[in-house]
Each structure stands twice: as C-alpha cells, then as structure tokens.
Design a protein around this nucleic acid. Structure first.
Length: 876
DNA sequence: CGATCCCGCCACATT
DNA sequence: AATGTGGCGGGATCG
C-alpha cells in the first residue's frame, strides 16, 4: 500500500490537495492546515488518491471490527516501520497487515494491540522528537484519531499527558501544537523542583517504608497539595504556544496527575514509584485513603499516564517486591539531571529505548543542531541567562494563581534555555500578538547569545576549514566529512565551519540543494497559518544559533552600515517576488524533464503557488511539519520582525532577522531546483535557483547579502570523487527576475562542463573556481561572499553527516522524499533552513542525492519505511 | 485472581 | 444546541 500510495503521491502532490489526510499522514506531514476542524473522515472519500482512504471508507461502512482492523493496519504499519525493534509487536502487526479484509476475523486485535501505550507510540512516531525548525506542527485531534484509528477520546488521554510535559500545547479547539522534546528537560527540571518541595520529603519516606507513607502523606498532603496544584497549573501555561485561555477548565486531573506522577519519579531517589504509592499521593486532595473505589480509579488513570510515559521512554514498568509481595511499579528511565536545561536528544535516553520519537531526534542533523544549542546555551547564554533564571524562578515559586503574568514569568523561566529563549523571541517577533510582553525579556538574552558566539564561530574557523574544500577530488569529500563534524563539535558546537568555509564540497553522493536567498523569508509567512507560527522560527533559531551568528556576520560584513533597514525593504520586495518564485522554479525543465517523476511533480508544484504545504511535507517529516506551521505564518510576522529589529538595532534583531529571513526566504522562494540525474545526466545533480536573482551574481550589489546561490551543480555519486565547491553566490534579490533564473541556469551549465573534467567543480558566485582555488577570497568574513558561504558550508556539513551515515539518517531520507514528491516549495526549503543553517541545504541536497543513490529504495520505500529509518536513526 | 486498562457513557466546557 | 473535553469506572483481557 505504502508504495502504491507513494508513487501516486508524488504526482498528486503537485496537484495539491490538502484533503488527503491519509496520504499526508503517511507522508508524515501533519499540520499544514491550521484549519483544524476539517473532518478527516469526510476527506477520504473525496480523495481518490489514497487507495487507503477508500478502503477506510469502505471499511468504516462495514462492521466496526473491520474498521478497527483497518485502522490498526494503517497505524501499525507506520509503527512497525518506526520501531524496528519491536519484533513481537511487529509480528503481530505484520500478520494484520498482510491479511486484508479476510483476516479481521482471524483474530480480533488483541487488547494489547489497542493499548494506549502502543497508540501513543504511533502518535509519537508521527512527530519528531526534536522538531528542528521553528515551525510548530499542529496536531489535529480528529485527524490523528482517524489516522490512528481510534476514538478521539484516546487521543485526549495521550495528548493530555504530553501536554503536562509540554511536549504539546493546546492551540485551539481540536488542535494541538507539537513542541517535541526540546523543552522536556526544562519541564522535568521544573517538575523536579516543584516535586522536591511538595513530595520530596514524602518520597524519601516512601522509599523506606510505604506504610508510613500513607500517614505522612495525609499530613503533608494537606500542606503541600495546595501549592503543588498551583505550581502545576503554572507549569501548564508555560508552553510556548501559550494558549492564553488555560485555566478555566477544571483542572484536568489527568494533566495534573501526570505532572505529579512525574514529580514523584524525579523526587524519588530510587526513581521507582509504585502505583499504589503514586495513587495514594495523587489522591491527596481528595480524601485520604477513603474510597477504595477512588483509589482504584486513580490507579487506572495512572496506568493511562504510565503508558504514555512509557511510550515516551521516560519510565518503564518494573516490579518491586516489597514486604508483602511484588507490586507493580514504574522506574524512571528518563533524564535525571537537568543541568542547563539544555535538551539533549541523545543523552536523554541512556536507557536506549526504541522510542520512535526519541530516535528521530537522533538524526544527525538534529544532533548537530542540538549540540550547537547546548553548547551555545551554556557558554554565552549562561551569563545572561542565569540571572534571569534566578529571577524567574522566584517568580515561579510564587504560588500565584495562574495568570498571564505568571505565565510570562514562567515562560521566562523556561527561557532559561537558550533554545527556549530564542524560540520565544522569534515567536514574539513573528507573533507579537501572542506573547509580545513576555518575549521582550528573553530577547536581550538571545542577543547575547548570538553576539558572543558569532565572532568566534564565524570567522575563526574559516581558515582551517577552507583548506579542506580544496582537497583533491576523492579526498575532498571525505576530508570534508571529518573536518566538518569536528568543526562543529569543536568549541561549543557552534557551526563555525559553515560560515567559514568559502566553498562547499559535496560528497559524491550528495546533495545539491543550495538555499539561496534569503531575505524574502517573510514572504512565506504570508500564509497565515495560525498564531502558532512564531514558535517555529524560534525553534529554528535555537537550533541554529551558529547560523544566526553567521548570518549576522554576513550582514555586518556586507552592509555593516544599514543591515536591518535594508533587509526590511528587501523582505518586502521578496514578498513580492514570492509569487514569482513558484514560476521560477519551472525553469530548468528541459534537461531534466527526463528526470524522475519527482522532478516532474516539482514542476507542477512550481506552477502551483501555494504548494508550500506539499513541499513541506516532502522535505522531511520533521521539517515538513515545522514547515507547515512556518508557512502559515502571516505576513505580519515580517513586519513584526522588522519592528523588533528596529527596536533592537543591535545584533539580536538583525540576527533574528537574518535567520528568519533566510529561513523564510528559502522556503518561500523555491530558489533552487534539484534535478535528478537522468540517464545522461545521472552523474550530476543540479540545483537551479529558480527564483530571482539572476542578477545576484554580483555579490556586493545587494546591500543585503543574500545567500542565494544561483545554481549549484552536484556531481552524482559516480562523481563522488569530485567534490563540488560552491562559492556562495550572492544575488541581489531585490529585483527578482524570472530571467535571472535562466542566467543561473546558464552558469550551471557552465559548471557542468567543468565537472565533466572530473575535477572538482567550484562554483563561485561570479565565476567558477578551480578545485584548488584558495578559499581566501571568500575568507574575508566581511565580504558578502561569506554570507553565502556559510550557507553552503552548512549544507555541506549537513550533507556530509548524512551521506556517510546514510542509513543512519532516516530523517534525511524523509526530507528527500518529500522534496522529491513535492516540487520545490518554499516550505520544503524552509524547514531545513531552520535547522539551520546546517541542515537545510544539506538536508535537501541529501535527500535528493540519496534518492539518486538509493534511487529505487528510497523512492520505493513507503512513508512507513521512512519512518522506520528514522526511528532507527534515532538511537544515534 | 490480581494486574491492566479498553471502552465509551456521560457530565461539563466551549463554541 | 452542538461539539469538544475528559472524568470515570464497568468489565474484559492478560499473566
């Protein structure tokens, strides 16, 4: 089925159809439509594409059992894929899958198959643990429920728990926003702190003697309880999305229970909590020990929560043999210490769970980003941040009722993490409405971050890195890999490499995507998704601090005098362009027509202005998700950003702007077209900048140094020996002319010829550089050239990482597929973009490349497979 | 038989 | 009033 779907998908995509729930689901792209309440159920019918949809419909018509089965099948498959390890389950699933309709009778899905835990895994499998970009994936409960084939009620169970950990937040009626685990540690840290206050003592007691516990409980409950609740409530509001409404609802016991439950673990020295103890503690408020029924109910709920937490890989079931006998208990296997509040995708699961979500997080690109963040945070941010934390905490400690103020404060707390701060900031910028006040405080912090790191990361690296690119053909690629990663790791994980390298080397297999320009970023935002948007950008920033730095540097270099101002106008212009962009994409058809079907769809996409959604999806599951949201961003955001910039003339604003711009711009404008190698061209991959900028050639010309590279040609795998070097070409996007794309094309061709020679090709903004050309020219950080370079470098780095690992980086694959299926949509680009700088280009390119390399495999691989791969990757 | 926990009724909250 | 949320616990299933 998957395969089937996919093949269709590609062609479909261009067509555009939001309605394709199923397809989307498979594709991994959820969100996209903020639209919420669309009922998926209806859609299936309309959508001819997904065979599955039709099946579902039919099934639904049939007996409920059938329906369930059907649903399960769908669900399970993805799960299976995602979870390689689950042999047991998988077997069962397989059974199910294989059998078609007939089967349903054979065995009604065992209860286990319907377990909340499993469902939760499925659910989590749909979203990246660490969504790269800023975007926020919106989760439609209806959609998810239908996809997973369960009643909505069950989704609530999951979402409520996730919400308690801030993995998601409720945005609107039927919609939740996916945050991923970025803030998980922070949340846990907070819970731990609160837990210490509330339950610390009790837990200690418990640990030793349960019996006494009860008594003490009762005593302390009274005292602690009130506070705890408050705190809990407070916690809830924190989430980025900040759905202001919040309180009113009766406290959702499940959420609070979940938080309390987690607190117990965090407070517990043994990290093991037995259900009964937890139940007792949780009953707290109610009455001590009174109703047995209550206790029973509580336990039931705890099971629900435990299932979700287990799926998250935070706890695992164990048995504690105590005095009388063996009691069910759960052991905390998640992160225990939350030092900086940094989120460590990898570290958090020492236990090695096969959690899909976690695994995804592990993607190389992600990791990189994460690393960067962490380091970042620790270093620069620390100074500024800590004070903030202290302040915030005080506030948080305050038992105040949950008011917005609190939220703000909480937010600020949360902000401690650089990442968090960044996100918020961006959000604010983009969505002033949402949390403008709150955001303000964090901003300065960000600026600090950005500022400090920038200088170091950006320039210093250059010299060292540069040489590597120049390396001989075969070697170069490898060398790059090594060097790049090292560079990343070096220092604070900043992406120094990127900025520095003047040229990008593409590994043989590699990629080609170049993201170019940038300022227009805002354009995308034109799409008014929902208020959520802001978060995405923030995330992206967080993820890509280095990039930001680089960008800043660029700006400075290029147009130190009036970076911000210039940009704004540029952005505007770009926005104008945006519409154009899609068209531009079309350009490179001729040679590539032969290209894969994928390419074709792209063209189609190009034609379609709003393809964005598709592209996003295509890009990478994760990215796509994020992308959707981003795309949704309203134009306003641009303005906001501008404003913010103006407000903060200093680095922060500009940096942000840059980032956002770039992000936006790329996605917004599908500047590059990736052409898969056809038979003749097989060896070469081309990226064409569709958009404007032909004029771009002149680097200096635009006040705003844009990254945009007119065209990039990447050698195919066969060419592996030949590295491509791309000097970032700068285009002046200001006057985007479709014609420009052509110019780019021409340049590409030119480069192509050079490639033929087997020597590594270097594409300079203006001219082609011979392989050995010294990077020096670009070396000057100040020169506009740098700007592009960093981008390229990033892409390279990303590529490198991915390409070598190949298998290991499922994420990439996903991205690739998406792109392939979907034409260049701005969105696609965007997501990558966020990550940054590093990933973006690389990811894109990777995708492409991989496709080529793997070709059939990747393509053929169903979405499910993709997911699986991802999951596999997650382990790191 | 106890541990789990699916299922979905039904009340309350929102729209 | 309709629909979204989610408390709650009967009772099925698992071990």
């Amino acid at each position: 089925e998957n395969i089937f779907d996919r093949s269709r998908m590609a062609p479909k995509t261009p067509i555009k159809n939001e309605p394709v729930d199923l397809s989307k689901q498979k594709g991994c792209t959820p969100e996209r439509n903020p639209i919420t309440p669309v009922k998926l159920v209806d859609r299936p019918q309309p959508d001819p594409w997904t065979p599955t949809a039709n099946l579902k419909i039919l099934v639904s018509a049939a007996s409920p059992d059938m329906r369930d089965r059907e649903k399960k099948k769908e669900l399970f498959r993805p799960i299976e894929n995602s979870e390689q390890s689950d042999t047991l389950d998988s077997l069962q699933y397989d059974m199910v899958d294989d059998s078609t309709v007939d089967e349903f009778e054979k065995q009604r899905p065992s209860r286990k198959q319907k377990s909340l835990g499993l469902l939760c895994q499925k659910f989590l499998a749909r979203y990246p643990s660490y969504p790269l970009s800023t975007e926020k994936t919106t989760i439609s409960l209806d959609e998810v429920a239908s996809i997973l084939g369960v009643e909505r009620r069950r989704i609530y169970d999951i979402v409520n728990v996730l919400e308690s950990l801030h993995l998601v937040s409720r945005v609107a009626k039927n919609q939740y926003c996916w945050h991923g685990r970025h803030n998980l540690n922070q949340t846990l840290k907070m819970l731990q702190e609160v837990g210490e206050l509330q339950y610390g003592e009790l837990m200690t007691v418990f640990q030793h003697k349960e019996q006494d516990l009860d008594y003490k409980f009762g005593e302390r409950k009274k005292e602690t309880i009130p506070d705890s609740q408050d705190t809990l409530l407070l916690d809830l509001p924190e989430p980025d999305c900040t759905s202001a409404s919040v309180n009113s609802r009766k406290d959702k016991s499940l959420r609070i229970m979940s938080q309390k439950f987690v607190m117990l673990f965090l407070v517990s020295k043994t990290k093991i909590v037995t259900l009964d103890v937890a139940a007792k503690i949780l009953i707290e408020e109610t009455q001590d020990t009174v109703d047995h029924s209550k206790f029973k109910t509580k336990v039931r709920r705890l099971y629900d929560i435990a299932n979700v937490l287990t799926s998250l890989g935070l706890i695992k079931k164990v048995h504690v043999t105590e005095d009388r006998g063996r009691k069910p208990a759960f052991k905390w296997i998640g992160p225990v210490e939350f030092p900086g509040k940094t989120d460590e995708p990898r570290g958090h699961s020492p236990t090695s769970h096969p959690l899909p979500g976690t695994q995804r997080g592990a993607h190389s690109p992600y990791q990189i980003c994460a690393t960067g963040k962490q380091k970042f945070t620790r270093h620069a941010s620390f100074n500024g941040i800590k004070p903030c934390e202290g302040t915030r905490r005080k506030v948080s400690s305050e038992p105040s009722s949950p008011s917005q103020e609190r939220q703000d404060e909480y937010c600020s707390k949360m902000i401690n993490l650089a990442a968090v701060c960044r996100q918020k900031i961006e959000e604010d910028n983009r969505n002033p409405n949402i949390t403008s006040p709150l955001s303000i405080p964090p901003v300065p912090e960000d600026s600090d971050f950005c500022v400090n790191p920038l200088p170091q990361a950006v320039f210093p690296v250059v010299a060292a890195d540069v040489p590597s690119p120049s390396l001989p053909n075969g070697i170069s690629s490898q060398a790059l890999h090594h060097s790049t990663p090292a560079a990343f790791k070096t220092e604070s994980g900043k992406p120094t490499l990127l900025p520095n390298q003047p040229f990008l080397c593409f590994p043989s297999s590699s990629l080609f995507m170049l993201c170019g320009s940038l300022q227009e970023s805002n354009l995308k935002e034109t799409l008014p998704s929902t208020g959520d948007v802001g978060s995405r950008s923030a995330e992206a920033q967080a993820a890509i601090p280095p990039a930001a730095c680089q960008k800043r540097s660029f700006h400075k270099c290029t147009s130190p005098s009036a970076p911000v101002d210039d940009e704004e106008p540029a952005a505007k212009k770009q926005t104008m362009e945006q519409s154009d962009v899609p068209l531009s994409l079309v350009v490179p058809k001729k040679p590539f027509e032969s290209l894969k079907a994928e390419s074709t769809p792209r063209n189609g996409c190009a034609s379609a202005v709003h393809l964005e959604a598709f592209p996003l999806d295509l890009a990478s599951p994760v990215a796509s998700e994020a992308a959707d949201k981003e795309s949704a961003k309203p134009l306003d955001s641009q303005e906001q950003e501008k404003q913010s910039q103006s407000k903060d003339p200093d680095e922060p604003s500009p940096g942000k702007e840059h980032i956002s711009k770039e992000n936006d711009s790329q996605p917004s404008l599908p500047q590059y077209l990736y052409v898969q190698p056809t038979a003749g061209l097989s060896s070469f991959n081309f990226l064409l900048s569709a958009n404007q900028a032909p004029g771009a050639i002149s680097l200096a010309a635009s006040p705003l140094p844009s990254m945009s590279v007119p065209c990039v040609v990447v050698p195919s795998a066969a060419l592996a020996p030949f590295p491509l070097m791309c000097s970032p070409a700068v285009t002046s996007p200001l006057s985007p002319v479709p014609d420009g794309s052509f110019s780019a094309t021409s340049s590409m061709n030119f480069s192509m010829s050079s490639l033929a020679s087997t020597t590594p090709v270097l594409i300079g903004t203006t001219a082609v550089v011979t392989p050995k050309v010294s990077p020096m020219p670009w070396a000057d950080p100040q020169q506009p050239a740098l700007h592009p370079n960093p981008v390229l470098a990033r892409s390279c780095s990303a590529v490198k990482l991915d390409s070598p690992v190949f298998m290991g980086h499922p994420v990439t694959l996903l991205k690739l597929q998406q792109p392939s299926s979907a034409p260049l949509t701005p969105k696609n680009i965007r997501p990558a973009h966020d990550e940054a700088v590093f990933k973006t280009p690389g990811s894109l390119g990777d995708h492409v490349t991989w496709k080529k390399n793997d070709g059939s495999q990747t393509r053929n691989a169903s979405s499910v497979q993709r997911r699986l791969e991802i999951s596999s990757t997650s382990p790191d």
